[in-house]
Simulated scan of single mutants.
Amino acid sequence: MILPGHTLGMLGGGQLGRMFTVAARTLGYHVVVLDPDSGSPAGRMADDHLHAAYGDAWALDEMIARCDAVSTEFENIPADTLRALARHLPVRPGAAALEQAQNRIREKGMIRRAGLETAPFQVVERPEQAHTAFAAVGAPAILKRAAMGYDGKGQVPVDSPQACAEAFEALGRVPCVLERRVDLEREISVVLARGSDGRCLCYPVAENIHRGGILHMSIVPARVPQATAQAACEAATTLAGALDYCGVMAVEFFITASGALLVNEMAPRPHNSGHYTLDACVTSQFEQQVRALCGLPFGDVRLLTPVVMVNLLGDLWAHGDPDWGRLLSHPAAKLHLYGKEQARPGRKMGHFCVLDPDLAAAVEAAEELFNRLAA
């Protein structure tokens, strides 16, 4: 075990790295963040911020010399960086797991090899494949870049072979996945922690509502049958085992109108839909990330109260800072701001949670508070 007083490294300086850093420092660890952004939110909270590229040789030497273990806050860290660090110290999760999540083609293939279901899809890597892929998948469909797409970016809805071909051109002729748009009943996600010994714990399932391809609200516990929630946890655990994963990860699911449970995608890190754990669980997903990294026993994942989490995007700052008094006047609202210097439309600037023993009341209050901020 790596105990408090040692130094942990974090690759990535965004809000997920920031919340990891807060959890680690609360537990008594030192934290070194590597991120090329000199104003990174995590870098401001860490003991030290290495302002350098993720492949910078000097920065990697510093991480090796100063850190006892390293984790990541997003999946697009170069795999070679992780492998270079792993030759000298524990890196959790490892390069192999991140490589699967960095490319939708690899990811979907891995999910199916694990015996889990996805929405129908076809690979499109050349222009001539667009028409045949569309014929196989059918309408409605969505063409997604295989790499570097998130929060609705790098995705184009298509409803004909010609539209598919045009979308492939618009996305720059990069490898893509054409995916059938299923008839959705709702979307859910599972955040779990898995140790190097294979022990796995799942947090309560979250029900997710998106706007414009970006998560807007997570409702916990998800309003789904217990059997569905259990099946999702079992599927997420299966996926983590197939990856021989160590750390915190999230798996997103579609529930179709017919009741089928389909894996949408995985995230090899803490997840936006798990932010509710900061306020409503015995152990947050970020403390759990520290525990997994350091080989400590996992904390209790029990939900203490129903909760609703709402994202705060940069759109709310269009006319200046939102009136936080409208939110903080609610005694059970918990505000988390990420310390980002510049607000932009679609940029995640913070979130808030509303806690209430009555889930329906929590949903109603969260919607009302968000509307107040947006007014």
Rank of each mutant, 00 (worst) to 15 (best):
R194C: 10
A79F: 10
L89C: 11
M110W: 12
P345F: 10
T256S: 06
P221N: 09
V124H: 02
K340W: 10
I209Q: 11
V33Y: 15
P297M: 00
L11H: 04
E368F: 12
S71F: 03
Q342K: 14
G247F: 04
P297L: 01
T81Y: 02
T132L: 01
I77G: 03
D159F: 03
T21A: 13
V22K: 12
A361Y: 07
M19V: 09
G320H: 13
R186D: 15
E265T: 02
L16V: 09
V282I: 01
E117D: 03
G274S: 01
M148S: 04
M110E: 04
L304M: 10
G5C: 09
L8P: 10
Q15Y: 14
D68S: 15
I2H: 09
E73N: 14
N208Y: 02
E367W: 07
Q162D: 10
A366Y: 12
C246N: 06
Q342N: 12
P78I: 07
G152N: 11
N371H: 14
L304K: 09
P36C: 11
Q155H: 09
V205W: 01
G339D: 15
R347F: 08
G314Q: 05
Q285I: 03
A333G: 11
G259I: 15
L328P: 00
P157D: 07
A374R: 15
P127A: 09
A318S: 06
L116G: 06
V224Y: 03
Y245P: 02
Y150A: 11
D183M: 12
A375T: 13
C67K: 07
C176Q: 08
L11Q: 03
A229P: 02
S258H: 07
T81R: 07
A280T: 02
P78T: 09
Q122L: 06
D47M: 05
A147P: 03
P93H: 11
R44D: 15
S71I: 06
Q289M: 14
L293P: 02
N208Q: 06
D321N: 15
L116V: 13
A260T: 05
Y338K: 00
E287K: 01
E187A: 14
G172K: 12
A165H: 02
F370C: 06
P225R: 12
E62N: 10
R112T: 08
W58H: 10
Q285H: 04
G314K: 01
V91H: 00
G13H: 09
A240M: 04
Q122G: 05
E99L: 05
R173G: 06
C246A: 11
C176Y: 03
G325R: 15
A133D: 01
P268I: 03
A114K: 06
G9R: 14
T7N: 12
R291V: 02
R113E: 15
M63G: 00
M249R: 00
N76T: 14
E252Q: 03
Q289F: 09
D356K: 09
T72S: 08
A257F: 08
E265S: 00
A260P: 00
G198Y: 04
A57E: 15
A236I: 14
E252P: 01
L303G: 00
V307Y: 05
L85Y: 13
C164M: 05
G339H: 15
P127G: 08
A333K: 10
A193R: 14
